[in-house]
Design a protein around this nucleic acid. Sequence first.
DNA 1: AAGCCGATCAACCGCAATGTT
DNA 2: CAACATTGCGGTTGATCGGCT
Length: 280
Amino acid sequence: MGRSPCCDKNGVKKGPWTTEEDQKLIDYIRFHGPGNWRILPKNAGLQRCGKSCRLRWTNYLRPDIKRGRFSFEEEETIIQLHSVMGNKWSAIAGRLPGRTDNEIKNHWNTHIRKRLVRSGIDPVTHSPRLDLLDLSSLLGALFNQPNFSSVATHASSLLNPDVLRLASLLFPLQNPSQVYASNLDQNLQTPVTSVSSQPQAECTTSTNNETSSFEPMNARLDDVADVFLPPLSESFDLDSFMSTPKSSPQQNSLEAEANYSNYFDFGFPENLIFDDFMSI
DNA sequence: AAGCCGATCAACCGCAATGTT
DNA sequence: CAACATTGCGGTTGATCGGCT
């Protein structure tokens, strides 16, 4: 048995809504409530299918919808939630009062996703794109030096030691995103309002329906890193490196990116226009 | 001025989940 | 419990706009 169509195709208008149609829908819902979407257009005198009416109401006409540009805090929340939830736009929207799933989805695809790519972060896995930065080959060459210790000593005088340590954390991994994801995961048990340290067992991404475990790898990798490198300075943490900062509400996205761009303070070609690489 | 192109976002489509009979 | 109806969701499309040549 085939699916019954959501509406009769004949006589049903499609395309952009007119202000008159909007007003009819608003007036009807104000008086009767949404009720049954299938019969709503007929009762409201609209030549639309119920699905179209529902979408128009939930995504555009609802009085509690917040319109306008996304704030830095909202973008930060979206990025963090997406790293854990994947493309669960309705779930993400549930954490952003006044924003619809459609709006968030559009904003992700048109703004945030592109910015992450430009910043060298994979928007799907939220891992640093070391291939773009060519960090792995740089460090691979470094670590494979026969006289590695002397090279490392020399390098440490040139490079930010935090970067060296971070690199040692990331380099042995097949998938560095696990470190980042694990960290984020811990911070997002109760997003927006509070932070719990309880680790989450797994996270499902909607892109491939694979379920991957985020084991706490930091401790194990620290053992490796400690052999070669001095401890991280107290001001450094992977969260602030990988995610946008949490503590400065007035900060815009550009400034936020500049914050973690500081950690890549090594070896870029002189002709590289860093602003073009990192900015919106 | 006209055409092209990329960005944006409202709206649509198809499927899955859930509810009802 | 099965069949059907309804709702919710995520991916995609297409109209519109502004910038550029």
